[in-house]
Design a protein around this nucleic acid. Structure first.
Length: 141
DNA sequence: GCCAACGTTGGC
DNA sequence: GCCAACGTTGGC
C-alpha cells in the first residue's frame, strides 16, 4: 500500500463535506496539474491518504482511502488530459497536524508538503506517514 | 491582499 | 526547443 496527501481549500471542499459523503466517497475533481494527475494515476484501490486543509486551517485533518481508480475528470468533459480518483473518509486525526508542526519536525524535512507547497496531490513515504499519524495522536505507543 | 514560487502557454 | 509572459497556488 502506498500513501498520499490530498489538498483542499476547506471553503471549496472540506473534510466535513468529505465525511458527509460516507463510504460512497467522492470524485476528487479539479486537478489541472500533470504531476498531481500522474500521482493519481499511480494510486491503487485501498491506498491511504491524508486530507489537508490549505489556506484556511493549514493542517492535516483526516485520513482517506482511494475508493475508485483514476478515470476521466467529470468536470473536464472536453479535455481528456485530466483524470482523477475517488476517495472516501476513513477517520479524522484526533489532533489535526498543522503545517508549521510538519515544518518544525526534522523527520518531515523531505516531505512534499514542506518542500513543494504548491503540489495538490502528493506522495507520502511510509516513514512520513507514521510521523504525521503519531503527531496527530494516532498509533502512538 | 500581497507576493514568491512554480507551471503553462505561445511566439519565435 | 527556448524563454518571456502570464496565470495560479498557497503561505504569510
Amino acid at each position: 500500500m502506498r500513501y498520499w496527501l490530498f489538498k483542499s481549500e476547506p471553503d471549496v471542499w472540506s473534510w466535513d463535506q468529505q465525511v458527509a459523503r460516507g463510504a460512497a466517497g467522492e470524485e476528487w475533481t479539479g486537478v489541472r496539474n500533470y504531476q498531481a494527475r500522474n500521482n493519481m494515476r499511480a494510486m491503487a484501490l485501498g491506498d491511504r491518504g491524508f486530507f489537508y486543509h490549505s489556506n484556511i486551517g493549514k493542517a492535516v485533518v483526516g485520513i482517506v482511502e482511494v475508493s475508485a481508480l483514476v478515470r476521466p475528470d467529470s468536470t473536464a468533459p472536453d479535455d481528456p488530459r485530466w483524470e482523477c480518483v475517488h476517495i472516501r473518509a476513513l477517520m479524522p486525526l484526533p489532533r489535526p497536524v498543522p503545517l508549521d508542526l510538519c515544518k518544525a519536525d526534522p523527520r518531515l524535512g523531505d516531505m512534499a508538503l514542506v518542500t513543494n507547497s504548491r503540489l495538490s496531490v502528493q506522495p507520502v513515504s511510509a516513514a512520513e506517514w507514521a510521523v504525521v499519524c503519531e503527531l496527530g495522536g494516532l498509533g502512538a505507543p
